[in-house]
Design a protein around this nucleic acid. Structure first.
Length: 310
RNA sequence: CGCGGGGUAGAGCAGUUGGCAGCUCGUCGGGCUCAUAACCCGGAGGUCGUGGGUUCAAGUCCCUCCCCCGCAA
């Protein structure tokens, strides 16, 4: 199959690699322009671009993929199918329907749930037990096209967003290859989405990062792991940021204010949450410092019982 | 030169107006205990990031450079 691949972040690298290994011909790779990153504001290529360059693929980095000249250039490659994986821009009809087989997308949720930009973050954050990946034909909407295949994944207690990204990339890459193959054979199904079941994983915002200690320990646990390893949930201690990388809800009850430190030991720092539930902070990161065990932080700070977080 | 915090024992930190380098944890040895992530006693472990400077004396004051990190993008 002659394919033009649209993708940007790490998640989109493995699916591209698997398509190549499956023998498909990648005529070009479209990815986001290099962006400024880090403290020194250096321009950085997307992971997909790095991979594409390393493999000698032709790379396109349009600021706006829907400009007429960009559309013409991409269509001129002569692809039979467009494949998108976390590309970051919506495609206009000229691109969506401009090839023999159309355009398909690999999405990291079980559609129609969690359409949008951050499906993996939301699945964990909202406490889902099951999530997965879906392949679909694209249309003008945001992840609203007809579905082709799904693969489910049961979320484990130790999963966080970073780990789930890696796992779903593996599952998704396999599902995508099967999807492309079946499209070629003309046997891929078209399953319309039930819009009444749809939900959206909108872009994460700054105010989503701060922990609300009024929530139960279980809810905060899901918040924290859903935000690991990016953008990382935090609370305030002495007016400074304290990122919480890892924590678990423990089977204890306390009668204290939400956000009050109950004490600490070698396992971590216990904090009272909503309904008297208790969260054990395990890995934290104070402003200007590296990531450390919560117990180390507490010892160095000579943390005392009763300190209020948040 | 976007703003800011920081580099002191294996880990996390303190170190006041320059004057013998400390705390908690870990580690090693011993003790207590049915037992312990518990408790008691004892020990080891540091060129205070680098290179200069000021001083009788620098972790501490001045300058150089390197490295780590928070915010912002």
């Amino acid at each position: 199959m002659k394919i033009v691949y649209f993708g940007s972040p790490d998640f989109a690298v493995l699916p591209l690699q698997k398509l190549i290994e499956a023998g498909h011909e990648i005529l070009g790779v479209v990815t986001q322009p290099d962006r400024k990153k880090g403290r020194s504001q250096e321009l950085c290529p997307t992971p997909v671009k790095e991979f594409a360059v390393k493999n000698g693929l032709q790379v396109f980095q349009p600021e706006k993929v829907n400009l007429p000249e960009e559309i013409d250039a991409i269509l001129a490659l002569g692809a039979e199918l467009f494949v998108t994986v976390a590309f970051g821009q919506l495609l206009k009809p000229e691109l969506l329907y401009g090839t023999k087989f159309g355009a398909i997308n690999l999405h990291a949720s079980l559609l129609p749930k969690y359409r949008g930009a951050a499906p993996i973050h939301y699945a964990l954050w909202k406490g889902e037990k099951i999530t997965g990946v879906t392949t679909m034909y694209m249309n003008e909407g945001m992840d609203t096209g007809d579905m082709i295949y799904k693969a489910e994944y049961e979320i484990l207690p130790e999963d966080n967003t970073e780990k789930l990204y890696e796992k779903l990339a593996v599952i998704g890459a396999g599902l995508l290859c099967k999807t492309v193959e079946d499209i070629g054979k003309g046997v891929a199904p078209r399953i319309p989405q039930d819009n009444s079941e749809a939900s959206y994983a909108t872009l994460l915002k700054k105010e989503h990062e701060i922990i609300n200690w009024q929530q139960t320990a279980k809810e905060i646990f899901n918040h924290i792991r859903g935000f690991n390893s990016w953008p990382v949930a935090y609370t305030l201690c002495d007016g400074k940021r304290l990122k919480i990388w890892e924590a678990v809800a423990i089977d204890e009850k306390a009668s204290a204010a939400a956000g009050e430190v109950l004490g600490f030991d070698n396992l971590g720092v216990k904090v009272c949450c909503g309904d008297g539930s208790v969260l054990l902070l395990q890995t934290v990161q104070p402003e200007g410092k590296g990531r450390m065990k919560a117990s180390d932080w507490a010892r160095g700070k000579q943390l005392t019982k009763g300190i209020q977080l948040g």
